[in-house]
């Protein structure tokens, strides 16, 4: 895994962010890293298991920064890619779980025998994913913005500097995108 971190660091330091090939490779590496991190959480080897996707992304970033912080451009590049990768990790997980449940696997119940789940959470998440894709077809910039906010956990200010636009513009776009997603999800 350290090797993955090393390769990510290297791309961020040397890579041209506008080179789509490099970005794809980076996306793959970050995806791998986030999954590995998540697995470590799952195996409970690792401290208090407070887990939010944004925390995972930030932890991944901290490990990079721990070696030597990437410059500003590298940092922006990382969070853009990581938001996308985190989303993909969750999508894959939702699909896997959905498949397991449909396959009627025995479910282990840790807490509460009465509250067996149907697959609605997975569905909810995949709906969000689909909505985001539709939003992205309409305006890729907005999809990217939502990923930065929701999956990378960046603040409005951080999102603004990462996208290189004003905070006001980000705030407006974010407000509009939420309205759109809300309506789209309600309709789906």
């Amino acid at each position: 895994m350290d090797d993955v971190v090393g390769r990510i660091t290297e791309i961020l330091r040397r890579g041209d962010p506008s080179d789509p090939g490099r970005t794809d490779e980076l996306l793959e590496l970050v995806y791998e890293d986030l999954r590995a991190l998540a697995t470590r959480y799952m195996r409970r080897e690792h401290g208090p298991r407070t887990l939010q996707p944004t925390a995972l992304v930030h932890e991944a970033y901290m490990r990079l920064a721990g070696t030597r912080p990437p410059d500003w451009e590298g940092r922006s590049h990382f969070f853009r890619v990581a938001g996308r990768a985190m989303r993909q990790v969750l999508v894959d997980e939702a699909r896997r779980r959905g498949a397991v449940k449909r396959g009627g696997d025995a479910r282990r119940v840790t807490l509460d025998t009465q509250l067996l789940d149907d697959s609605s959470h997975e569905r909810d998440f995949l709906d969000l994913h689909d909505s985001l894709e539709r939003l992205g077809r309409m305006d890729p910039h907005l999809e990217n913005l939502v990923e930065l906010r929701v999956f990378s956990g960046l603040t409005l200010d951080e999102t603004a500097s990462t996208l290189g636009v004003s905070r006001r513009k980000v705030a407006k776009d974010w407000a509009a995108a939420r309205l759109w997603l809300h309506r789209d999800l309600a309709g789906s």
Binding site: Y41, M42, P53, R97, D124, F125
Partner: peptide
């Protein structure tokens, strides 16, 4: 998103 994360 949070629910999705807790799956992991």
């Amino acid at each position: 998103v949070g629910r999705a994360a807790s799956w992991i």
